[in-house]
């Protein structure tokens, strides 16, 4: 591997150490919105969800706007004594970094979100972890960046290219995790 690659590693260790000191952790919230929402309502609910995270001090890394997907099995949700069954939903996710102390209150609010059918919160890494459906994701991120003005339009596509020269990389996009454990 060329020297430029080593630089990327050195850079990532520095930011990661910095993050550890600050007590910042990268999380990802994946969720299903109920399919009864209209396309416009989904966008509204998604921005509502994001504002909730932002309020708790989260900074967004990447996201995918909810898309209608078929569920692998039926999921039911009980709202006010009525049980409803769904076989499809709007699946979206958002990756953000936040102080670990803030994640419990975030989860509490997400849990109370009425249009969310199911959610998952996982700890993850800053770099892009998607491989298979990259085109779809980068397109979605591009669309999102057009709307929200986010910074990582190119990073999704770039993150996976292993021979990316260090001087070309945007400040935060490509960050390989060092293997040291």
């Amino acid at each position: 591997m060329p020297i430029s690659c080593d630089n990327v590693y050195a850079m990532s260790t520095k930011t990661e150490q910095h993050e550890r000191q600050e007590g910042i952790q990268v999380y990802e919230l994946g969720f299903h919105f109920v399919p009864t929402l209209s396309e416009d309502e989904v966008v509204v609910q998604f921005s509502h969800l994001k504002s909730l995270i932002e309020k708790k001090g989260g900074t967004f890394i990447s996201e995918e706007t909810p898309l209608m997907t078929k569920l692998a099995y039926e999921i039911s949700k009980t709202v006010k004594a009525t049980k409803k069954r769904y076989t499809s939903a709007f699946f979206g996710w958002v990756k953000f970094s936040v102080n670990p102390e803030a994640i419990a209150p975030i989860e509490k609010e997400v849990k109370a979100f009425e249009s969310i059918l199911r959610y998952i919160i996982i700890t993850t890494v800053r770099e892009n972890t998607l491989v298979g459906s990259r085109e779809a994701v980068s397109a979605a991120t591009l669309a999102a960046s057009k709307k929200g003005g986010s910074k990582e339009a190119g990073s999704e596509a770039e993150a996976s290219v292993e021979t990316t020269p260090a001087d070309e990389t945007p400040v935060t996009s490509v960050e390989e995790t060092p293997i040291a454990e």
Binding site: G30, I122, E127, T129, G132, S133, T177
Partner: peptide, 15 residues
């Protein structure tokens, strides 16, 4: 082989 360091649950095609 594909230099995948993190396996994502959303990567349904791969997993």
């Amino acid at each position: 082989q594909n230099n995948i360091k993190h396996i994502d649950y959303k990567d349904v095609d791969v997993i």
